[in-house]
Write a protein that binds this DNA or RNA. Structure first.
Lengths: 339, 339
DNA sequence: TCACCCAATGCGAACGTTCGCGCGAACGAT
DNA sequence: ATCGTTCGCGCGAACGTTCGCATTGGGTGA
């Protein structure tokens, strides 16, 4: 690799001006006489000059990097949206002259440590957080530090920070209302543990839709678990073992993996979907349409969310006092054969 | 944000030595007297000193960043492995003091331009490439430039560079041999277009397994298409419309999406899987186990691949002449109910 | 006792930018 | 002619490191 780096000095020499002038002219900070402007531009062009990133960052004390880390994939808990989310953030960031810096996800106290390190080393100018929950430690820490960040997802009411979220309650209202409209008398829910902010948000939509229809949800038809296939399969099976006039006619699940568990439970008992049991999922996983029957599910506007996160963060980092720094996006019900 | 950055000078002042000495001592380049070592270490500790990244990079002319971009997700062509691949690379990189720099994927001539820009601006010290194909333009460009990179996947024989790949041929040999062993007389293949290096590699395994069993593959049982559900569905349906004694009894697909297409085609014709048609996929997508029937598929050691890519790249960047800079990993057949 | 050496630390410079200030020339106004 | 004023550009400094070399001081050899 014999590339010699081309710097401001090289351009300046070719253009016959001082290198500081080249800097200012190329950055549009001063306005030069037409002919020097021309000379500088063509010199830069000819040499293929690109400002050195580290030098620029060192001087300006801005890294133009956005830190991001995500929960690593675990067996049976695939992350269906990372791909889209990441791609959209990278694209949006690039358009604004920023880059994403992915770093390993840590749990516990070393988690904050890794954020601290990135800040102290001047690696990043801000963060995007995902998988936030009530009283999120990262959100609290960054807020205390006054370090810019945007969360995809909300936390406790007490913490005030910029966030982007998908209205999970609205999603489940859509799903539940859809089932009510189709005449389902008994609708069960596969939910997340009570300490899950996202889970409770979605569940609230389910409850609200029932209330709106003048119904009430019997507590035994809300099963809370880890969001896995196995949990959903077992819970659904238990429900379905009641006699036909008593058991749920439909199930809404807070994610697609659980919806699939419900699907399988029904089929294992020889029941037909959606005639004997309707099922609606959440996430619209890539393969949802290829399941049997194709899964009705709630699709989140992930690209939009990624873009908004970055957009908001950049504004925050630029020090713009944001009048409105919370964005709630609406999901969409994708109706397929399962409900 | 009122954080004042703590620099070498601050540490030096507290420890009562020059800041250059602090640098060398902390980097282990000189060995100091026990008491100054102690003073320096505790001063650094106390102030929470972290070397500034940009300054270090500027001086050493190494960014310690690895550029990576991937084909963006498109409808119906989900990327099932990005999550794992990215996570493993990020972790491996971090362990070696590197970070990943994701950047938007571009097509055509501007693709090379984006690599060029990152190099010129000193953004990255090396690249990881995926989705390489015969005569890959990026691989060619980087080779010419002598700029370090590692590819996940091979290219043409003419291009010599470090790569990591999964032995797709071995995967399909496994799958095909499995079907032969189960007594399938007629095995068809859902393949990729002939200009796909990955596709041809996998197909070669299918052919090899047939040859090894003393069989020959009739050309009409190799369907080449875009790897989509729709293509596979149509192709399989065409095969299955022949009378029972003539049609394939099994299908191997070069990806899971096509395998699912085959599954659906069979079921649409009232055929049972695996009794009437056995199906094997490739990728072991997260939901493969939840399909009906659960999909037999070939699983690639993606974590391992990600780690190896980064490991190889770092060695290359460190200028180590690699004796063996090609790694071929073996996939695994995950046998489920579909075959 | 002197020359020498090695170990421990300091010093100046450089990496490539950006930023504030200053200076000369040209200009219109008095 | 003289005096600001503006315009175009240059200069020095700084961001926080690392690196090579110089400098000190205490020990060791003859």
């Amino acid at each position: 690799m014999n590339r010699k780096r081309v710097s401001l000095k090289d351009v300046a020499e070719l253009a016959g001006v001082s290198y500081q002038t080249v800097s200012k002219v190329l950055n549009g900070q001063v306005h030069a006489s037409p002919e020097t402007l021309q000379r500088i531009q063509s010199a830069a062009q000819k040499l293929g000059y690109r400002p050195n990133r580290q030098a620029r960052s060192l001087r300006t004390q801005r890294s133009h990097m956005i830190g991001y880390s995500w929960e690593p994939p675990q067996a049976g808990q695939a992350n269906f949206i990372l791909d889209l989310f990441l791609t959209s953030m990278v694209e949006e960031a690039e358009a604004a002259g920023y880059h994403l810096l992915p770093f390993p996800y840590r749990e516990g106290s070393s988690q904050i440590q890794s954020y601290q390190n990135l800040i102290d080393a001047g690696y990043v100018d801000g963060f995007v957080l995902t998988s936030v929950n009530y009283g999120d430690a990262r959100a609290r820490f960054l807020t205390e530090q006054g370090f810019p960040f945007v969360a995809f997802g909300r936390a406790s009411a007490g913490l005030d920070f910029p966030w982007v979220d998908v209205d999970g309650a609205a999603g489940l209202r859509l799903a539940t209302a859809h089932l009510i409209e189709r005449g389902h008398p008994r609708i069960a829910a596969l939910a997340w543990p009570a300490d899950s902010r996202v889970g409770n948000d979605r569940l609230e939509g389910y409850l609200a839709a029932l209330r709106a229809a003048g119904r009430t949800a019997p507590p035994e038809w809300i099963a809370r678990g880890e969001g896995t296939f196995a949990f959903a399969y077992a819970a659904t099976r238990r429900w379905l073992e009641a006699e036909a006039a008593q058991r749920p006619t439909a199930v809404v699940a807070m994610n697609d993996t659980m919806a699939i568990g419900a699907l399988h439970a029904a089929q294992a008992l020889g029941l037909r979907v959606p005639q004997d049991l309707a099922v609606i999922g959440f996430d619209d996983a890539p393969m949802a349409e290829f399941l049997w029957p194709p899964l009705t599910s709630i699709r989140q506007p992930i690209r939009e969310a990624g873009r908004k996160c970055v957009e908001l963060l950049i504004k925050t980092m630029d020090g713009q006092a944001l009048a409105k720094h919370q964005v709630l996006l609406q999901p969409e019900l994708i109706v397929r054969a399962s409900a």
